[in-house]
Design a protein around this nucleic acid. Structure first.
Length: 864
RNA sequence: GCGCGAUUAGCUCAGCGGUAGAGCGCCUGCUUCACACGCAGGAAGUCGCAGGUUCGAACCCUGCAUCGCGCACCA
């Protein structure tokens, strides 16, 4: 490539290189490699999923880690795949079925329905995989896994059998979270508490045998009165303690009012409501426990779908639970026992998937008593796993400390079938139970339920790998995920890893932030505030999207997304593109250029020093997973250091016979390293430029990562650039257009400055710069660290305007001097501050004073 | 109720004990032969509030406020 287009055009470039990488098998991990291993398993997106900005963030980070590992000489495995996502996928297919064929899954039957789900999965599933390729993800696609793959699914069942045999899995009738829409039990983690505005209803019941003595009860759920089997008070509550042992009449259903005992239980709070609790063991977890303690009967008044059943009475049977609430209040009012209703806000548990309130329900489910909870906590405490940011450790530890058994059975069809078989026994009502994968034989019926999706994904880190792969790449190096699945996935994976491999599944866990919109709201489809990443890629290129996003994604902090930031990412890519274009216009590139063998200009030395500084900043950024820091460091290096100073200065140095070679060598050397450092963030652009510039014909991702060299700073370059800024400011204050070439004069005692005149001329866009011995007439003075710069104002500006400007300038300088003097005048400061700080202030004072002196001289000369 | 995070320029965010920073936006001037997806310059902040520690605090400590997120059986 001898000539580059004027602007970077990502579309063609991206497609070209991705196809090439695949064709070259660059992403395929080799377990027999002698290189050190680096591995990541992808958090498997749902097969139903489409790419969101959250995925972009997450997977860009993984890709950055993977590509950087390749560049640092590792054999890299980034293992991709998808999750069967039980409820989500089943729901999608059921919806389609209803819409297109007006059928339910029961119309088809289990086998046929599952066939349809697989058919859907083959046809529409895994769109997200193709989208990840558009992003540039360097996954080893030859190892793509699915949580329902035959081998994987078998391992899931084997693990179930194993845990069953160890006595950790058991079946029991318990209070579970029931989703009346999905018609399945849920784990505690799948229940999202939401604040709900409702009412607290107060109603009264008369104590039997004590006419005129009423108990007032407060409830948010009057529709469950029909299921009440007691009322409870706290035995230490003096208002009510004497009533314990008495009875009240349950008002509903009207045709079946029943006598309920008044019991005493410590779970009842004095302060809440009236201090009297209605106890509904079938529909509330606390009430269920109270019921257990007092051997209360359990009256389940609801159907699985959340409608009321016949036990609720004729007025309620068939009503939805929320209609029943309205009806119950109405009935209480009719009975004249509704005392009052007051607005009330409380937390209601919602089903994560279906987004409806869950119903606590007593049902027969499978539970897991978690293995390895102690070692899992120790892994973090002792540092065999580290979290970034660290604060999540506390959250993790707290959860493990208070861990509850996991309800792992789901009343769905799509998923891993529970490997348990039943057979009617000989005797009346006895059932034989066998836990094994294959049917024990004739007449045995398999448990109809499937396992929670997370019961399969918790094995993801090791069961996605075959034996040689595991040997090389397990435990994995890092896991990148959102903190929202710290319990669902991260914690459980640690326990599974410890139980089944004897090792932790990963060394580092990086928790990303959550992407929000500009108002700080979560991205969601319903709000319509979630931009389609593919549109963004189309508009700004995958690299622009990646870089723009990474620059604003500080470690584990939520991110407010603003498309403008992606625009900046795109602009940055274009800037680098043009820097390379500039280089190519100067002639052929030397890929092995060594600037240290040449005489170098000040700005070349300065750039090399800044480059080394950036490399060490990047190293520490990777050590702490501070990606926005790395991106920002590269942004500064490329834009401010390389383009604004070095390239601009080079426009003089490239015409300088002695400096030309060194300048070109510096340019090649620096650009090569910039491309390498940038490659993890912007893989397409850097691959394109790597080849375009002629740095190599192999992929950039296997080139040598630049090591940090110690290159001292070049203070003269700093002095020179400060002088340029001061001079530019001077010109601007006269309102002179930057295109107007002006005559400058320089009075300097520094010898080295004389050889920088040409550079100065280019940076100031000067017509001429003349060295002088004393102050010229009709010129504005501008004291700088390299001497006094004069701007010839002859025929350019009115002297009286100039004088006024100088006066103003002197005022500002005077103020600064006073500030520093005050500080230095304070005895407590000079006595207590460290000597280097004090001398820093002294120096500052000197500089300001010199500046003031120069200004005063200039003004006086002008007045004369 | 407990825990965690955030609060710095109009916006998005750095800085975490020694002169308040960047990008965008805004204003001014530029078709300067890499780039208008650009160049140069400028205006703009009592660093949420109140105390404390310190010679010195955006930064450390203690409260408080606001926003957000977890966890918790308060009907």
């Amino acid at each position: 490539m001898s000539e580059l287009a004027k602007a970077y055009e990502p579309q063609t470039v991206e497609a070209k290189w991705y196809a090439w990488w695949l064709q070259q098998r660059h992403f395929v991990a080799d377990p027999s490699s002698t290189k050190p291993a680096y591995s990541i398993v992808i958090p498997p997106p749902n097969v139903t999923g489409v790419l969101t900005l959250g995925h972009v963030l997450n997977n860009t980070i993984q890709d950055i880690l993977a590509r950087r590992a390749r560049l640092t000489g590792h054999e890299v495995l980034w293992l991709p795949g998808t999750d069967h996502a039980g409820i989500a996928t089943q729901t999608v297919v059921e919806r389609k079925l209803r819409k297109e064929e007006k059928k339910t899954r029961h119309d088809l039957g289990r086998a046929e329905f599952l066939r349809r789900v697989w058919e859907w999965k083959e046809k529409h599933g895994g769109i997200i995989i193709e989208q990840l390729k558009k992003l540039g993800c360097s996954c080893d696609w030859s190892r793509e896994r699915f949580t329902m793959d035959e081998a994987y699914a078998r391992r899931v069942q084997e693990v179930f059998v194993d845990l069953y045999r160890k006595g950790l899995i058991y079946r029991g009738k318990r209070m579970v979270n029931w989703c009346p829409v999905s018609l399945t039990a849920l784990s505690d983690e799948e229940v999202i508490p939401k604040a709900q505005k409702g009412y607290l209803y107060y109603f009264k019941v008369e104590v039997v045998g004590a006419p005129g003595v009423f108990l007032e009860i407060a409830t948010t759920r009057p529709e469950t009165i029909m299921g009440d089997t007691a009322v409870a008070v706290n035995p230490r509550d003096q208002r009510y303690a004497h009533l314990i042992g008495g009875r009240i009449l349950r008002p509903l259903p009207v045709e079946n009012q029943a006598l309920l005992p008044i019991i005493g239980d410590d779970a009842v709070e004095f302060e809440f409501g009236t201090g009297v609790l209605k106890v509904t063991p079938a529909h509330d977890k606390t009430d269920y426990e109270i019921g257990q303690r007092h051997a209360l009967p359990i009256v389940d008044i609801m159907n699985p779908d959340g409608t009321m059943n016949e036990l609720a009475g004729e007025d309620f049977a068939g009503l939805d639970r929320f209609e029943a609430r309205v009806e119950a209040v109405e009935k209480l009012r009719e009975l004249g026992i509704l005392v009052r209703e007051e607005p009330y806000e409380n937390n209601v548990g919602f089903s994560e998937r279906a987004d409806v309130p869950v119903e606590p329900r007593l049902s027969e489910q499978w539970f897991l008593k978690y293995p390895q909870t102690g070692p899992a906590r120790a892994a973090l405490r002792e540092g065999s796993i580290r979290f970034f940011p660290e604060r999540w450790e506390k959250v993790y530890d707290h959860w493990l400390e208070n861990i509850q058994d996991w309800c792992i059975s789901r009343q769905l069809w799509w998923g891993h079938r529970i490997p348990v078989w039943y057979k009617e026994g000989e005797g009346e009502g006895t059932t034989r139970v066998e836990c094994q994968i294959e049917s024990p034989g004739e007449g045995w019926i398999q448990d109809p339920d499937v396992l929670d999706t997370w019961f399969s994904s918790w094995l993801w880190a090791h069961e996605t790998m075959d034996e040689p792969t595991r040997k090389k790449f397990y435990p994995t190096s890092a896991l990148v995920t959102g903190p929202d699945i710290i319990f669902f996935w991260v914690a459980r994976m640690i326990m599974a890893g410890l139980e089944y491999t004897g090792e932790v599944p990963f060394r580092h866990v990086y928790f990303t932030g959550i992407i929000r919109d500009k108002q700080g709201r979560k991205m969601s489809k319903s709000l319509g505030n979630s931009p389609d990443p593919l549109d963004l890629i189309k508009k700004y290129g995958a690299d622009g999207l990646r870089f723009g996003l990474m620059r604003i994604a500080p470690q584990g902090q939520d991110i407010r997304f603003d498309e403008q930031q992606i625009v900046e990412g795109r602009n940055f890519c274009n800037k680098l593109w043009n820097a390379c274009r500039f280089r190519l216009l100067q002639g052929p590139v030397d890929p092995e250029a060594d600037p240290f063998r040449h005489e170098l200009s000040l700005f070349a030395k300065d750039l090399l020093s800044k480059l080394e500084g950036t490399i060490s900043r990047i190293e520490s950024g990777y050590a702490d997973y501070r990606f926005s820091d790395i991106a920002q460091a590269l942004y500064d290096l490329v834009w401010a250091q390389f383009c604004d100073w070095f390239i601009e200065a080079s426009k003089a140095d490239l015409n300088h016979s002695v400096r030309k070679a060194g300048t070109l060598a510096t340019m090649d050397y620096a650009l090569k390293r910039i491309l390498l450092l940038l490659h993890p963030f912007t893989p397409f652009l850097t691959e394109e430029l790597w080849h375009g510039m002629g740095f190599g014909s192999e992929s950039i991702q296997f080139a040598q990562w630049p090591g940090a060299k110690s290159v001292g700073a070049e203070p003269r370059a700093v002095e020179l650039s400060r002088a340029v800024v001061t001079a530019r400011t001077l010109r601007a204050t006269f309102n002179l257009p930057s295109s107007k070439r002006l005559r400058w004069l320089l009075e300097s005692s520094e010898d080295w400055v004389k050889s920088e005149i040409a550079v100065l001329g280019v940076l100031l866009n000067a017509e001429s710069i003349t060295l002088v011995e004393q102050r010229p007439a009709h010129a504005a003075a501008c004291p700088t660290e390299i001497g006094i710069l004069y701007l010839s104002l002859e025929g350019v500006v009115d002297p009286s305007t100039e004088r006024r400007r100088l006066e103003g300038e002197m005022g500002k300088v005077q103020a600064e001097i006073e500030k520093v003097e005050r500080k230095l005048g304070s005895e407590s400061f000079t006595l207590n501050a460290p000597p280097e700080v004090v001398s820093e202030h002294r120096q500052r004072l000197e500089t300001w004073s010199a500046r003031l002196e120069a200004l005063r001289g200039a003004r006086d000369a002008l007045a004369a």
